[in-house]
């Protein structure tokens, strides 16, 4: 089910960065801050106050959690874990993305029920290491992922009427679709497999499988039309 509401817990530099990057992707955005005096004027319209001891009544009342995405970005690790646990305890269906300072707190946040954790230290170190060791591939991947070039990465779901349906992955001649490269396939059970992996080789495409492809916008569109499917992200069973 597509997400329409973003709930950002905490008001700090990370919360503002997230807000700036996702505000055009959601219909509703709410920032839950504890110290509302320090809020910048332009952000005030998103603000709701909250307390860690809350029963979350206002969320229960106002928000459809199954269509919401929560970002837990409290600076204190212990509080962030406590927040994640209380959100998970109250809202089973809520998708939670949490920010962690390191791997240790990332593990705890996962245990606390976060769907996705961004370990800040590891991620930054990963990116720097790639910049230094594989500068070209890093630049290309970065431009693809963050759409800084005409190249795009897209997820294409195999639909009921796709002519790829029931075909073995191995037997499809991808070279027919010159403009794009298929990187991997995500099966219905949410396991992603590299296109040339042994497991993916004999995989029979089923409606609901998602292909991850790289190409130019025009070619991706053409490919979508050819295989008769549409770009879609199903968050309902999402878990990492």
């Amino acid at each position: 089910m597509p997400k329409t509401t973003a709930l950002i817990f905490g008001y700090n530099k990370y919360a503002r960065e997230i807000l700036n990057n996702v505000k055009d992707k959601y219909k509703n955005i709410k920032i839950y801050a504890r110290d509302i005096e320090k809020i910048k004027e332009e952000d005030k319209k998103f603000i709701e106050s909250f307390d860690l001891s809350d029963e979350w009544d206002s969320i229960k009342k106002d928000v459809d959690v199954s269509k919401s995405m929560a970002f837990c970005v409290l600076e204190d690790t212990a509080e962030n874990i406590f927040l994640t646990i209380s959100l998970r305890a109250n809202f089973e269906e809520l998708t939670i993305i949490a920010l962690a300072s390191n791997k240790e707190s990332a593990n705890k946040l996962k245990m606390a029920g976060a769907n996705k954790v961004i370990p800040l230290v590891e991620t930054t170190a990963d990116i720097i290491a790639n910049m230094l060791e594989k500068p070209i591939s890093n630049r290309i991947l970065h431009s693809i992922l963050y759409e800084e070039s005409a190249l795009k990465i897209a997820q294409i779901k195999i639909s009921e009427d796709s002519h790829f349906k029931d075909e073995e992955l191995h037997s499809i001649d991808w070279t027919r679709y010159n403009g794009i490269i298929v990187l991997s396939v995500m099966r219905k059970d949410m396991k992603s497999e590299f296109i040339y992996s042994n497991k993916a080789k004999h995989h029979i495409l089923e409606p609901g499988d998602v292909l991850v492809v790289v190409g130019y916008e025009k070619d991706i569109k053409e490919f979508e039309e050819k295989i008769g499917s549409k770009r879609y992200v199903d968050w309902s069973n999402w878990s990492w």
């Binding site: 997400k3 996702v22 920010l99 720097i128 990465i153």
Partner: peptide
């Protein structure tokens, strides 16, 4: 390298194209 900016970019991608991001 500005880690704060990375968080923003990652979140944006994570929200828009989770599978591609993971790949």
């Amino acid at each position: 390298v500005y880690p704060q900016e990375l968080v923003g970019l990652i979140t944006k991608e994570l929200v828009g194209k989770p599978v591609a991001f993971e790949v």
